[in-house]
């Protein structure tokens, strides 16, 4: 791993963390608890396409751990890790099958995976499968939110792809 790459990862992590903290300050309550835009995911997606899957994983993990420390919401860490891990796996798999003009679709797939991961942790924590009643709501929300962040990532990537970050 060269110095340029370490610096790029650090820069992207800082951007992701800033977006994460700012988003947490905006009180955006939807009808169903737990739904948010997840704007910092734009950075994860861009990292995956500009650098590599490994770098995206590193940026995501850094953002989740530091984001939980900075926001003081340690209870949410378990949910973020589960959602993040599942979203990251799906992101890696779907990005191999899709072109770099289909980042928006990768984003939607990973948003659905993220919400399902959180729901699974919720079911485990609550020791009840009743929380799965929220599945259709979370899938619908993931499609809208994933499309929004995905389109943002798509346009950002197309303008940044000539940068020499590696």
């Amino acid at each position: 791993m060269n110095i340029r790459r370490i610096a790029s990862d650090a820069l992207l992590s800082a951007i992701a963390l800033t977006i994460f903290i700012v988003e947490a300050q905006i009180p955006l309550t939807f009808a169903v608890p737990g739904i948010k835009l997840g704007l910092s995911n734009i950075v994860t997606l861009i990292t995956m396409y500009l650098l590599s899957k490994k770098d995206a994983g590193a940026v995501l993990l850094t953002r989740i751990v530091l984001g939980s420390v900075f926001s003081g919401n340690t209870v949410a860490l378990l949910y973020s890790v589960a959602g993040g891990a599942l979203a990251y796996s799906v992101m890696c798999l779907s990005s191999s099958a899709l072109s770099e003009k289909q980042i928006w679709a990768v984003s939607i797939f990973s948003a659905i995976a993220h919400n399902m991961g959180q729901l699974m942790v919720a079911a485990l924590v609550m020791r009840s499968s009743a929380v799965f009643a929220y599945t259709p709501v979370l899938v619908a929300a993931a499609i809208f939110v994933g499309a929004f962040t995905g389109i943002s990532a798509q346009y950002t990537f197309l303008r940044l792809k000539n940068l020499r970050l590696k």
């Binding site: 169903v32 608890p33 209870v75 919720a122 609550m126 009743a130 009643a133």
Partner: peptide, 8 residues
């Protein structure tokens, strides 16, 4: 179908 859930 939606239960009220207090996760923490």
């Amino acid at each position: 179908a939606y239960p009220i859930v207090c996760l923490p």
